[in-house]
Design a protein around this nucleic acid. Structure first.
Lengths: 210, 210
DNA sequence: CCCGGCACTTACCGCTTGGTAAGGAGATTG
DNA sequence: CAATCTCCTTACCAAGCGGTAAGTGCCGGG
C-alpha cells in the first residue's frame, strides 16, 4: 500500500530535492549524499530506491520534460487560437514560478552537457517536449507548411529569450541592483509578448526583410 | 623574458584548455589534473602558475568577458549606425565560430551557477561586458532615455536567443537529425536579424501593443 | 508465532579530488 | 663556482566520491 494522499513517498521526496539541487549545482556539483542528507537519510538509502546516480538524474530530466509537456497542454486549453496558446505558454514561463525556473535551469544544463555526451547519448529527454512544441507552432496560421528548421529557429528564439531571463535574476541583481531588476520583472513580459508576435509575423519560407 | 612571439607561455596554454574544458563540463566536471594532463603536466605544475582552481576559473571568466568586450568594440568599428553595430555583434555570435561558442557556454554556466553563489559573490565577471552592452543600446536612436530595465530586457532577449541557438547544436541534431540542423544554420541568422530589428523597433517606455 | 520483504543502517572499498611539502634540473647572475 | 630563481617533479594528505556487502528493525500475512 502506498502512502496516504498528501504524504509523498520517499522516492518522490528524493526526486524533488534532487531536481532542485541538480538545477542549482549541476550533475557533478551534487553528490547523492547531499541529496539524501536533505532528508536525514544516508546515501545508501537513496541507492536503495535508485540504482545509480545517473538513473536518478535521468528520472529528474524525464519528470521535467513531462511537466513542460503538461504546461504546454494546459496552455492549449487556456488559449483560443494557436498563437495565443503559445503566448500563454511562453509568458507563463516568463512569470517564472519557482518550479518553472528549476525546469529551465535543468534544461539549460542539459543543453550544455549534451555537447560532450551527444555521441554516446541514447535517450533525449527533451525530445517529446520539443517535438510537441514544434507541432504546435505548425498549427499557427501561415506556419503549417513551414520547414522544421524554420520552426526550430522560432522556438529557440523564444525559448532562449525567456530562459536567459528566468535564469539571470541573481547575476543582474548583483550587477545592476535590486530596484532595476524588479522593474525588469514588469518590463520583460510586455516586451516578450511583443517579441512573440514579431517572431510569428515574420513569415516562414520567405526570408524576411527589415 | 617571456616566450618568443608565437609560442604561448605555459600559463596561457593552460588557460586555453581550461576555458575549453570548463565550457564543456563545468567547474565541478573538470579537475585541475584533467587540465594539466592535456599538456603532459602534473596538476602541481598548474598549481605553480595558479594558486587554486577557483582563481584559475576566475581568470578564465575574466578573459571571456574581455574577449566579448573586444568583439563589441570591433562591431562598433564595423557598423555605421548604432543599430547596425549591434546587429554586427549579435549576428557574429549567431555564426558561432568555435571560440565564441566556448564563451557563450561559459557565460551560460556562470548565469546558472550564480544562483547559488549570488550572495557571497564579490566579483561579477560579466559586469564590464554587460554594462558596455547596455551603454551601446542607449546610443540607438530613440533609446537614449530608456530605463536600464528596458534596455536589459532587450539585451537579454537577444543574448538568450543567440546563446540557446549556439549551444543547442548537439541536442537538436540528436533529436531532429543532421539535415534539419544544417538547414537551421542558414535559417536562424536571417530570422534572428529580423528579431533584432523587431526588438529595437518596439519603442521603450511606451509598452508596445501587437 | 514466525517468516519474508521493505526501508534503512553501518562498514567498507577503491578511486579521485584540491592542496601542501619538499626537492630537483637547468638556466641566469654575482 | 656558488647562489638563486623559475618550472616542474614525486610523495603525500585528508576528504569526498559512487557503489557494494551485510546486516538491523519493523511490519503485514500465513
Amino acid at each position: 500500500m502506498p502512502q496516504a494522499k498528501h504524504a509523498p513517498s520517499t522516492p518522490q521526496r528524493l526526486l524533488k530535492t534532487a531536481r532542485a539541487l541538480f538545477a542549482d549545482r549541476g550533475f557533478y556539483g551534487v553528490s547523492i549524499a547531499n541529496i539524501a542528507d536533505e532528508h536525514g537519510l544516508t546515501k545508501q538509502a537513496l541507492l536503495h530506491h535508485f540504482p545509480s546516480k545517473e538513473v536518478l538524474y535521468g528520472q529528474v530530466l524525464k519528470d521535467v520534460s513531462e511537466a513542460l509537456e503538461g504546461q504546454l497542454a494546459a496552455a492549449c486549453l487556456a488559449g483560443e487560437t494557436p498563437r495565443t496558446q503559445l503566448k500563454v505558454f511562453f509568458t507563463a514561463l516568463a512569470e517564472k514560478p519557482d518550479d518553472t525556473v528549476i525546469s529551465i535551469r535543468l534544461i539549460m544544463r542539459e543543453l550544455l552537457d549534451n555537447h560532450q555526451r551527444s555521441e554516446r547519448a541514447t535517450t533525449w529527454y527533451l525530445k517529446p517536449f520539443l517535438t510537441t512544441l514544434v507541432k504546435m507552432v505548425k498549427t499557427v496560421p501561415g506556419w503549417s507548411d513551414a520547414h522544421d528548421a524554420e520552426v526550430l529557429a522560432v522556438v529557440y528564439q523564444l525559448l532562449g529569450s525567456v530562459s536567459y531571463y528566468a535564469v539571470s535574476g541573481p547575476t543582474l541583481q548583483g550587477i545592476f541592483g535590486k530596484s532595476k531588476v524588479s522593474k525588469l520583472q514588469t518590463v520583460f513580459p510586455v516586451r516578450f509578448e511583443a517579441l512573440i508576435d514579431a517572431a510569428f509575423d515574420a513569415p516562414p519560407h520567405a526570408p524576411s526583410k527589415i
